[in-house]
């Protein structure tokens, strides 16, 4: 195979940036699945909802997509709290999470997708911003801002959430919910309220994830499905509940996918995440940094 050194280097670097973006898409699932044990397979659909929120803010009000996402954040937070409330009343309290709880999220995913198709159609939508299309050049290396900006936003989100979880009372309570709900009750904290807040946060990250998704590529309602395998592959590979493991896994997957599409063609990239997921589940289900 005749691939030049520069091409390879650029592929690895853009894979790194892409991986950073994957971290932002996965962080919501790292919270809901990794810490709250809620298998929210509809998360990619919420990400797309975020993309369309950014699209509306950008094309109707002329806002920067990231600013639009920041404005949408509180709404997504409330939406997440509402979804958790329904989930808690209908499934968690009845101890019926597996079959019906999963089907509930599957239904939500489908309804969101079809709803977006009904409103926006199946055309690809994109956003306008000054930095899209420009590149940072360093010798043979070319870093498109289209990938660099999402990478920075993503890293800020991850680090911010990590600090929040480690330093504040609420954050520690969220981590505690994952470990021992009874002990949390004894500390006079209501686990349901804590979980509601945490789930709200996880959906709020979808607003940011969606905005940077639409910066990276034009979106249409069904591309959310491609991200299900990716997001869960990253969370499983990283080890559930571990942010640093998740970032390492996201970057790894980003690089492997970019190399795959450089070497074999972009149509093969979606298969990578499934391979990674299956191998992880078969060989080391606890993930890279799992306990």
């Amino acid at each position: 195979m005749d691939v030049s050194y520069d091409l390879l280097l650029n592929a690895i670097l853009s894979g790194l940036l892409l991986g950073g973006f994957y971290a932002a898409v996965s962080i919501g699932v790292a919270i809901s699945f990794g810490m709250l044990d809620i298998v929210n397979i509809a998360h990619p659909a919420f990400i797309l909802l975020g993309s369309y929120a950014a699209f509306i803010g950008n094309s109707y009000f002329g806002l920067d997509p990231i600013l639009a996402a920041v404005i949408a954040l509180p709404f997504f937070y409330l939406l997440g709290m509402a979804v958790y409330q329904v989930y808690y009343v209908a499934f968690e309290r009845r101890d019926d999470q597996s079959l019906r709880g999963l089907s509930f999220f599957f239904g939500l995913m489908f309804i969101t997708e079809v709803g977006l198709v009904l409103i926006f159609g199946v055309d690809y939508r994109l956003v306008q911003a000054r930095y899209i299309g420009e590149s940072l050049r360093l010798g043979p290396i070319e870093l498109p801002f289209r990938l660099l900006v999402p990478f920075i936003v993503s890293m800020v989100t991850v680090v911010g959430l990590q600090l929040f979880l480690a330093k504040t009372f609420l954050g520690r309570a969220i981590q505690a919910v994952a470990q021992d709900q009874l002990a949390l009750r004894l500390m006079a904290a209501n686990p349901v309220r804590i979980k509601r807040i945490a789930f709200g946060l996880s959906i709020a990250t979808a607003a940011l994830g969606g905005a940077i998704l639409i910066i990276i590529q034009p979106v249409e309602p069904s591309i959310g499905r491609e991200y299900i395998g990716r997001v869960f592959a990253i969370c499983v590979l990283g080890g559930l509940g571990s942010f640093s493991g998740m970032v390492i896994a996201a970057v790894t997957l980003g690089i492997v996918e970019t190399l795959t599409s450089t070497l074999f063609g972009p149509s093969w990239a979606p298969a990578v995440s499934f391979g990674v997921l299956l191998i992880t589940l078969a060989v080391r289900p606890s993930g890279i940094l799992g306990r």
């Binding site: 298998v39 397979i41 597996s98 999963l102 499905r225 491609e226 299900i228 395998g229 869960f232 592959a233 499983v236 149509s267 093969w268 979606p270 298969a271 995440s273 499934f274 391979g275 997921l277 299956l278 589940l281 078969a282 289900p285």
Partner: peptide, 22 residues
Amino acid sequence: TLRLRGVFFSIATLALAVVVQT
């Protein structure tokens, strides 16, 4: 995947659909 918790099987089947399509 079936030796693990049920959710992992479900997630694997979701990803399976994307891969077979690819």
